[in-house]
Design a protein around this nucleic acid. Structure first.
Lengths: 251, 251
DNA sequence: AAGTGGTCTAGACCACGAA
DNA sequence: TCGTGGTCTAGACCACTTA
């Protein structure tokens, strides 16, 4: 009698999420009190609170002491900024994305990349370069540098990169968990090189992004440099709250 | 003998944070086990876990079952994306920012803005337009639309906008708490209008951003439309984790 | 005054990682 | 096998909101 390994509080979380999303509890309304939920789910209040905490992380609810647990307007229950590849982002919008050119090779790390990834000068690193095609025309030229010790024999997985996003492959094939990333976005105009790579005229607006990705333990792991046609793409950034004051207790 | 109203778990959180930041526990090292901390702080393990959870939210630690609680590399303990004004962002980088032109007026809401702010067509709304100047030249033209019922008599605070960022004024003068925002970033080239507003040639790369800001209860409250010289500015985006799978229990 | 979420305790058993 | 964090219980008192 497989009683599933999912912790109780997560099961409760899923069910409540479903009920909120299905409209059983509407925006602005109160959820049943923690005490009531504890009875209906046959769980302790602590477990209920654990489930509610997950819903709060998802921004589906917020809580008012003395009042109750309020269902949020779905409009602001947006996702945060996740580490997604260009391909994943476009596909999530329903666009079809294919790969044009694709190369995978081991090269000495360029100085800037070596700095970001904490390497010695000239250490070998995987270089992946791809053209991404959407709607029949190239829309982005993407360069990735990856630490070889984390992705051994990457060149053998080359064909996987045609269909999957890079990050999906890193997760599925190497079990890597990406934790954080910092991305810098600039805009500039195409020159002769970009015109050639993306088959566009010169003096077209382009995004130039540099992203450094870190693993759970803080190791910098990958550098992603993308050149993207600005007339075919827009960035969405989700912002949350105001900068924290550095509160200190007065004693 | 004021024994302070701060909950015990927060006091423990502050102390541990201090000890991490002061270097008592170094990156990569383990914190004492929850059991040990419970003894030294004379608190239950639940309370200790509450404190550690706060540290985890701050990205100062992460936990490994069977192993212990690990102090993170400070490098990835970066801030997330907060709702900051253009001015605040530039000032945080140490740049001096002043205001060029500045207008505040009540106008009928344009259709797109009325849609984003859930207004009736033609309802009146505050329109704030400013030129931001850095290093002697205009770098951005910023347009804000704000709900009048939330910021009564905004025109009287006009001069405050010369020195402060808009969001700082909203907090300090109106006690508004900004909760979430969604920003869309595009790049395009200057035409005659932009050339005039920012004193630049045509066909220069520009950022065009549209931001909708929501309050805690989910009310859309403000629309910010900015045009920024791309040769003077870059965006930094902090990304966190991978998109959640939509796991469902199988029973 | 009654009901809500916030904090806290003292225990228990489990799953995982390392020795 | 042992120590770690993860889950869970049953109870308690407090702070805040609303009536």
């Amino acid at each position: 009698m497989a009683h599933s390994d999912i912790p109780l509080y997560l099961k409760i979380y899923y069910q409540l999420r479903e009920e909120i999303e299905s409209g059983k509890y509407k925006a602005g309304e109160l959820l049943p009190s923690e005490e009531e939920l504890a009875v209906t789910f046959q769980a302790s209040r602590t477990t209920i609170r654990n489930a509610l905490q997950e819903l709060e992380k998802d921004n589906l609810i917020f809580r008012k002491r003395g009042k109750g647990t309020v269902v949020r307007e779905p409009k602001t229950a947006q996702n945060l900024n996740y580490i997604s590849s260009f391909t994943e982002t476009l596909r999530a919008k329903g666009m079809e994305v294919t790969t044009g050119t694709l190369t995978v090779e081991l090269v000495p790390a360029p100085p800037k990349v070596a700095g970001a990834l904490e390497l010695e000068r000239g250490e070998l690193i995987y270089l992946v370069q791809r053209t991404r095609v959407a709607g029949g025309s190239p829309v982005a030229f993407i360069t990735n540098y990856l630490l070889p010790r984390m992705v051994p024999e990457l060149e053998k997985k080359k064909e996987g990169l045609r269909s999957k996003g890079l990050y999906q492959l890193l997760e599925e094939e190497y079990g890597l968990r990406l934790h954080r990333a910092v991305e810098t976005i600039e805009a500039y105009m195409s020159g002769p090189l970009e015109a050639d790579l993306l088959h566009i005229p010169e003096r077209m607006p382009l995004f130039h992004t540099v992203r450094v990705v870190y693993l759970e333990d803080g190791t910098p792991f990958e550098v992603d440099i993308s050149i993207i046609r600005a007339d075919k793409y827009e960035y969405k950034v989700f912002l949350e709250g105001r900068p924290k004051e550095n509160r200190r207790s007065l004693k």
